[in-house]
């Protein structure tokens, strides 16, 4: 069994818009580690959500995958390239909601307002596994208990509007986990939530991951969330990967000027009374728009820099 659940190589996505073509992703390469949390961090337009949608093959016209591989090695089946699957391949049905499931930013849109919560979680089980309705409801109740919903016997018969935002997100997480996915993709799962609720949901996702030992791909713009959640971090900017490394490498000793800029721009206790650093002030004259290939450094991290910048790095290392 390979170490990496997913190996994404040179993934490219284009969108034909009203007024031209947008390159949403260019040469995106990174791995999703088995049994670990990989976080993609980036600002709007970085392509982080597009990447997640590619893994689920949810890119709809006018968007399309124009190149690259998404090499998926499931625990229990032969490996295949998700990007190359034909649209009607049965493996796609198993992939979506089966071996890979997703938690979105807005829990209300992921839940149907006209079915009870229990119904929806059980439905997720019945879609992918051959069990009786009673068994499905029992498992649904177990999973709801596990994501921290009290009074499950009563709550299971309620409708999503009877739940608060945080509770709804718990239900969505239960739905996502109930089929024991090998990969859970969380696309900004706490962005719409209050900070105290966010802390609860983050703790929940982290604890469940430790329990279930599944892989998680966590997409966020918030470096604080990344620091708390991730084992490995992928920094994206305008559809490209700029830096990949362990959470300590990327957040404590960032190499790429853009990563350094992002970190410096966060207002924190230390910045009180001082001007905040902006990306521009940190990046200086380094050109972020010219693509450079990802190079692996001595410490194992990967970074996209010009050869001049790389040379500078080695000098400062010595």
């Amino acid at each position: 069994m390979a170490d990496n659940l997913l190996e994404i190589r040179d993934l490219a996505v284009e969108f034909g818009t009203d007024i031209g073509t947008t390159h949403a992703l260019r040469e995106v390469s990174f791995d999703v580690l088995r049994g670990k949390v990989t976080a993609i961090v980036g600002e709007s337009g970085s392509g982080k959500s597009v990447t997640a949608n590619c893994i689920m093959r949810l890119i709809q016209p006018p968007g399309r995958i124009t190149g690259g591989k998404i090499h998926f090695s499931p625990n229990d089946a032969p490996a295949y390239d998700i990007a190359a699957l034909p649209n009607k391949d049965p493996r796609l049905l198993d992939l979506r909601g089966g071996s890979v499931s997703m938690v979105f930013q807005e829990p209300m849109t992921a839940l149907s307002p006209v079915y009870t919560v229990g119904n929806q979680v059980a439905e997720a089980i019945l879609c992918h596994r051959n069990v009786s309705k009673e068994e499905a409801f029992e498992e649904a109740a177990d999973m709801l208990r596990r994501v921290g919903i009290d009074n499950v016997d009563r709550r299971i018969q309620q409708y999503p509007f009877e739940f608060s935002g945080g509770m709804r997100q718990r239900v969505v997480i239960a739905m996502a986990l109930v089929c024991h996915p090998q990969l859970l993709i969380c696309d900004e799962p706490t962005t719409a939530l209050d900070v105290t609720i966010q802390a609860e949901i983050l703790t929940l996702i982290r604890d469940l991951q430790k329990d279930l030992k599944n892989s998680v791909l966590f997409i966020t713009h918030d470096l604080g969330v990344v620091a708390q959640m991730a084992d490995q971090v992928v920094v994206m900017y305008q559809g490209r990967v700029l830096e990949v490394g362990s959470v300590r490498q990327v957040l404590k000793t960032p190499v790429h000027p853009y990563t350094r800029g992002l970190l410096a721009a966060i207002p924190g206790l230390a910045t009180k009374g001082a001007r905040l650093a902006t990306i521009a002030s940190v990046v200086g004259d380094a050109d972020l728009t010219t693509p450079h290939p990802l190079m692996t450094l001595a410490d194992g991290r990967q970074v996209s820099l010009s050869s001049a910048q790389l040379a500078d790095l080695e000098l400062t290392d010595d």
Binding site: V225, A227, Q228, R248, L251, I266
Partner: peptide, 8 residues
């Protein structure tokens, strides 16, 4: 206590 710190 709920603010996530950017320091791992």
């Amino acid at each position: 206590s709920a603010i996530p710190s950017p320091d791992p």
